[in-house]
Design a protein around this nucleic acid. Structure first.
Length: 644
RNA sequence: GCCGACGUAGCUCAGCUGGUAGAGCACUUCACUCGUAAUGAAGGGGUCCCCGGUUCGAGUCCGGGCGUCGGCUCCA
């Protein structure tokens, strides 16, 4: 048979030859260094046979940055971890151990709980295995043989995996450790030059909290120590951008034990907050939304009607009232209030769409252990809206929302990744409705060129949805905006409008928060900018720094001129050296520092005129400009808030 | 909620096997009045997260709670 090499040449091989045979046929060095063969773009274990006509390419120990090469290295390291744990902790049950982004993990069920202190010994054992040398061999068994084998080894999780498998089952063995595994794996442990076990966590078997909780050991591995060091360095730098650290350093917000999950917004943080609010208000007005304000507290019946009492009670805060009076509950969402508002009057088809917008405080009693800085809070504020439409209006409305979301995210130069969640098994409504709803959502995504993945069956029981996600500084994905079609809640609240046919119809409601939660959005934004906000958003846009005591009056006058023009400019007239004050302004990431001293004073042609200013941009670049020129460029930068 | 770790000054952290708490930055005062990333000196500042236990004695050991961090589950 023949296979095609990357340079388009053909390699003649005996029938049934595998990747390793092909590598040997090319050269002994390649045979030694090969870790993986890519066949027509897909990765394949070296031990698996090639097929006539396939295009192949080898990944070797020199492809140290290649994601596939790292995957196979880490997957094999996970097996070394399992071998090490089984030796050090006899009787341990092994579950699964895949490679993941940046590393790998393996799940175990220990007889006795272990702690992080035990990781060091396990890591040493892995190093010992590598020094000793390990080679991977592959074998295939029938399902029944595999089940029998793992039953004999008292490995119930492997038995369960074998039971669920179809066809032949492959096993990989290194040393005296054999694992049920699809592969691929390295030839041997030689390329594993750097290993680090990073943390310990609980994880449910098969991700289901009703199952046993296993102990997950996380680690990472590289083809060189330098790569591991660089990886750790990157993590260190990422932590410097963490919004929780910057929130404190930049005096934006703080969190307190006195109200867990509820941020205290400081004056500078409120500038950011109001920046988002201004944008939200302005765009809502332009796009036909009407701002409303609905209560924070509702009686229990309201939540029974909305379904929250049934499905969301454990995340709600209930409020005691006077004796003999019914209890109330804080709203976790705005929907019930907006439903009641819609239902408060008789509506005509001529009124639709009705778009109610409200960015109101919501409270959700999140389960302990889930809170996370601004990214997961109890006091949450959404840029929420509920749009009541006829079915014919769905398409245009969704389209407008995607356009709206794109506009908002573009302001910050960020691109969320979208998910389209389609009909779940348990659902309300007819298939025709779902067809139309899903089509409307997908068409809008396509029309706006948004990249998206489909999550089949992940929609809500009342309708499909589009979610927008962003990643934080540690690479974790967070849901931001959401657009949800809902056929159900209007019915539960008995909402109707009078149609042209003089009959009552149920409106469809679209729940939509585009930024998502303002708290979360700001958290992501702080990390996105690393605290260095664009001029239009920066809490302090410029700082005036007088050189000496004699320049303070003029510096104040200059500060006042900026304030009159509507810019956020402060003054640093502390008894500190100029160098110190410049340094502080840089650390606070103030976009512009205006230095005023003798040189500027002498250049002034009149009392309080500013023909010459020494302007330092964030990062260090300096220039001399007049106040008028500086104001002009400030106005241009401020206009980025709204490009229209 | 679950697994693991952590909780000492406003911040970042030190505090050996239990003996009565310390540094740098920040803050206050004084001197210096300074040209683009840290001037110098002095001073103030702590229920060592909370409750209970062991002990002559607990920041340190044990138990419980709360909070935070890394995961799992859930979710914007």
């Amino acid at each position: 048979m023949k296979v095609v090499l990357p340079d388009s040449s053909e390699l003649e091989l005996p029938d049934g030859a595998n990747g390793l045979d092909a590598a040997r046929a090319i050269g002994p060095k390649l045979a030694e260094q090969a870790v993986l063969v890519k066949v027509d773009g897909a990765t394949r274990d070296l031990r698996l046979p090639l097929v006539d006509g396939e295009s192949i390419r080898f990944l070797t120990t020199r492809d140290t940055d290649d994601p596939d090469a790292l995957f196979v290295l880490r997957h094999s390291t996970a097996h070394l971890l399992a071998e090490a744990v089984m030796r050090l902790h006899p009787g341990v049950k092994i579950a699964i151990g895949p490679p993941i982004a940046d590393g790998f993990y393996y799940d175990f069920e220990f007889q006795e709980p272990i702690s992080e202190a035990d990781l060091e010994a396990i890591e040493a054992e892995i190093r010992r295995e590598i020094t000793e040398g390990r080679e991977w061999t592959r074998e295939e068994l029938s399902r029944d043989e595999a089940i029998a084998r793992f039953e004999a080894e008292s490995q119930p999780y492997k038995v369960e995996l074998a039971r669920d498998a179809e066809g032949q089952i492959s096993l990989y063995t290194q040393g005296d450790f054999t694992d049920l595994c699809r592969g691929p794996h390295l030839q041997n442990a030689e390329p594993i030059k750097a290993v680090k076990l990073t943390s310990l966590a609980g994880a449910y078997w098969r991700g289901d909290e009703h199952n046993a909780q296993l102990t997950r050991i996380y680690g990472t591995a590289f083809y060189s120590q330098a790569d591991l060091d660089a990886h750790l360095e990157r993590l260190e730098q990422a932590r410097a951008r963490d919004h929780r650290k910057l929130g404190r350093d930049l005096d934006l917000f703080h969190l307190s034990d006195h109200s867990p999950g509820s941020p205290f917004w400081h004056p500078k943080g409120m500038v950011l907050w109001n920046g988002l609010e201004d944008m939200r208000r302005r765009e809502n007005r332009r796009r036909g939304y009407q701002e409303v304000k609905t209560p924070l507290l509702y009686d229990i019946q309201t939540y029974i009607t909305s379904g929250h009492y049934e499905n969301y009670r454990e995340n709600m805060f209930f409020v005691e009232t006077h004796e003999g009076e019914e209890p109330l509950a804080l709203k976790p969402m705005n929907c019930p209030g907006h439903m009641l508002l819609f239902g408060s009057e008789l509506r005509s088809y001529r009124d639709l769409p009705i778009r109610y917008a409200e960015s109101s405080t919501l409270h959700r009693d999140e389960r302990g252990g889930t809170l996370h800085g601004l990214l997961r809070v109890k006091h949450i504020t959404q840029d929420d809206a509920h749009v009541f439409v006829t079915e014919e209006q769905i398409q245009d409305e969704i389209d407008g929302m995607i356009d709206f979301a794109t506009y908002l995210y573009d302001r910050f130069g960020v691109t969320p990744h979208a998910e389209l969640s389609t009909r779940p098994e348990k659902r309300l409504g007819t298939d025709e409705q779902w067809d139309r709803a899903e089509e409307a959502l997908e068409a809008a995504l396509v029309r706006h060129g948004l990249e998206y993945v489909i999550s089949p069956g992940e929609g809500t029981f009342y309708g499909p949805k589009i979610d927008l996600h962003m990643t934080d500084v540690l690479g974790r994905s967070w849901q931001m905006g959401t657009i949800q079609l809902d056929y159900q809640m209007p019915v539960q609240f008995g909402l109707t409008y009078m149609g042209a046919d003089n009959r009552e119809h149920s409106p469809v409601v679209i729940h939509r928060a585009l930024l998502g939660s303002l708290e979360r959005f700001l958290g992501i934004l702080v990390e996105h900018y690393g605290g260095a906000f664009p001029f239009w958003l920066a809490p302090v846009q410029a700082r005036v720094v007088p050189v000496g005591e004699g320049h303070r009056d003029a510096a104040r006058a200059l500060r006042d001129r900026f304030a009159e023009e509507g810019f956020r400019v402060d003054l640093d007239e502390r008894d500190e050296t100029l160098g110190k004050r410049i340094r502080d302004a840089e650390l606070e990431k103030v976009p512009f520092v205006v230095v005023y001293g003798d040189r500027e004073s002498e250049a002034a042609r009149a009392w309080r005129s500013f023909e010459l200013l020494a302007v330092r941009e964030r990062g260090g670049e300096q220039s001399d400009v007049s106040l008028d020129a500086l104001l002009e460029s400030f106005r241009e930068l401020a206009a980025e808030a709204d490009p229209r």
